[in-house]
Simulated assay, not measured.
Amino acid sequence: MLKAVVILLMLAVVFSLFSGLFFLIKDGGKTNRVVNSLTVRVALSVLLLLVILISLWQGGLLLNPTP
């Protein structure tokens, strides 16, 4: 379940990245849609980082041990 949340957040970050690119090309920087898209992407990235750090701290995700 936790891995699905992480993957979903990663996909949302990538989608926000490409929507910002689309708005930049379409609008030419005349509207605030690019800034809004970048704000959403930063917020999603921070949320993703927090989810990963909290799950590592609680033991939900484990780092790959050396063989």
Rank of each mutant, 00 (worst) to 15 (best):
L8R: 15
L8M: 11
L9P: 01
L9E: 06
M10W: 11
M10N: 15
M10F: 14
L11H: 12
L11K: 13
A12M: 10
A12Y: 01
A12H: 08
V13K: 02
V13G: 03
V14C: 11
F15S: 07
S16Y: 00
L17T: 01
L17K: 12
F18A: 07
F18C: 07
L21I: 13
F22Q: 13
F23G: 07
F23P: 06
F23E: 11
L24V: 06
L24W: 14
I25C: 01
I25W: 08
K26M: 09
K26D: 13
G29E: 15
K30N: 04
K30H: 07
K30D: 09
K30W: 03
T31G: 03
N32E: 12
V34A: 05
V34M: 03
V35I: 13
V35W: 06
V35M: 14
V35Y: 09
N36Y: 06
S37D: 06
S37C: 15
L38A: 09
L38F: 10
T39W: 01
T39M: 14
T39E: 11
V40H: 10
V40K: 12
R41D: 00
V42W: 02
V42A: 04
V42K: 08
A43L: 12
A43H: 00
L44K: 02
S45I: 09
S45A: 10
V46W: 02
V46C: 04
L47H: 01
L49I: 04
L49V: 01
L50Q: 11
V51R: 03
V51G: 01
V51S: 06
V51C: 08
I52P: 00
I52Q: 01
L53Y: 10
L53Q: 12
L53V: 14
L53K: 13
I54R: 07
I54E: 14
I54L: 14
I54Q: 08
S55L: 08
S55P: 02
S55W: 06
L56W: 02
L56T: 10
L56H: 05
W57D: 12
Q58H: 11
Q58W: 11
Q58V: 15
G59S: 08
G59I: 06
G60F: 06
L61V: 09
L61K: 10
L61Q: 09
L61I: 15
L62F: 09
